[in-house]
Amino acid sequence: MPRSLFWSRTDTAGAEHAVLDDGAGPGFAAYGTQLAVDPIPYTCRYRLATEADGTTTSLAVEVEGAGWSRTVRLERGADGWRVRTGEQGDLDAALRAAGRPPTGLPGIEDTDRLHEALDVDLGGSALFNTLPIRRLGLAGAASSTEHRITVAWVLVPSLEVVAGEQVYTALGPGRVGFASDTFRAELTVDDTGVVRHYPGLAELS
């Protein structure tokens, strides 16, 4: 049976609800909704699919706020990543009206930068850290060496896609170290690899 998961944001007013359909092995499918007020109020909906080995095959995201909306779809095939985008309204105008700086365009110009990415990451979501944790078998592992990976990181609310470098390290059952640039955190996960506590971001209810 699919699982219903709900995280409360701890970095801003917001929440995430996801429905997770576990497959055999580390792979799974999920769809969900994020609500947040920072940098401006928005609703973000996503749909994710992976292979049985946990590698991502597709991610579709749509985000909307007052007077604007954006979409991005990522698909990974034998020849690499394909990224398609859409936009209505003016997100930058909404950001300027809220006293916030403008943001980047949705998508990515050079998909070759994503060549080594087997996972995707969605800004503001604790669920997406589960992808490499399950794929690498870190949830119940004893302390181990670090795993340095490249992810296709989708920024929210801009839906700009960048190649991000992340580091995951098993710290013992239920604990995984996570690092990205200068940021470091110890994630608490359940026995299936789902992130329960992401310090400074989200807590699973």
Rank of each mutant, 00 (worst) to 15 (best):
L5S: 00
W7N: 00
W7T: 01
R9M: 02
R9D: 03
T10V: 07
T10D: 07
T10N: 11
A13T: 13
A13S: 10
G14A: 08
H17D: 12
V19S: 07
D22Y: 04
D22P: 12
G23D: 05
A24N: 08
Y31V: 06
Y31M: 07
T33L: 09
Q34C: 07
L35K: 11
V37N: 09
P41L: 07
T43S: 10
R45G: 12
Y46D: 03
Y46N: 12
R47E: 10
L48Y: 00
D53I: 08
T56L: 10
T56F: 11
T57K: 05
S58M: 02
E62N: 14
G65A: 02
A66S: 12
A66L: 04
G67I: 03
G67T: 02
W68H: 03
R70K: 03
V72L: 10
R73S: 15
L74V: 06
D79Y: 11
R82C: 11
V83N: 07
G86H: 04
E87D: 10
Q88G: 12
Q88K: 04
G89S: 08
L91G: 02
D92W: 02
D92R: 00
D92S: 11
A93D: 13
A93P: 04
A94C: 08
A97N: 12
P101S: 02
P102W: 01
G104N: 09
L105P: 14
P106W: 02
G107L: 03
G107C: 14
D112P: 06
D112G: 12
R113V: 01
L114V: 01
H115V: 14
D119E: 12
S125F: 03
L127T: 02
F128D: 01
L131P: 06
L131G: 08
R134Y: 12
G137S: 04
G140P: 01
A141N: 12
A142K: 11
A142M: 12
A142R: 10
S143M: 13
S144N: 09
E146H: 02
H147C: 09
H147L: 10
I149A: 05
A152K: 04
V156Y: 02
V156K: 05
P157V: 06
S158Y: 03
V162W: 03
A163P: 07
A163V: 06
Q166D: 07
Q166N: 09
V167I: 15
T169D: 09
G172C: 10
P173D: 13
P173I: 06
P173N: 08
G174K: 07
V176M: 00
F178G: 05
T182E: 15
F183Q: 05
R184F: 07
R184D: 15
R184A: 14
L187P: 02
V189L: 04
D190T: 07
D191K: 09
T192P: 01
T192D: 15
G193L: 00
H197L: 14
P199I: 13
P199D: 11
G200E: 06
L201D: 01
L201F: 05
S205Q: 14
S205K: 05
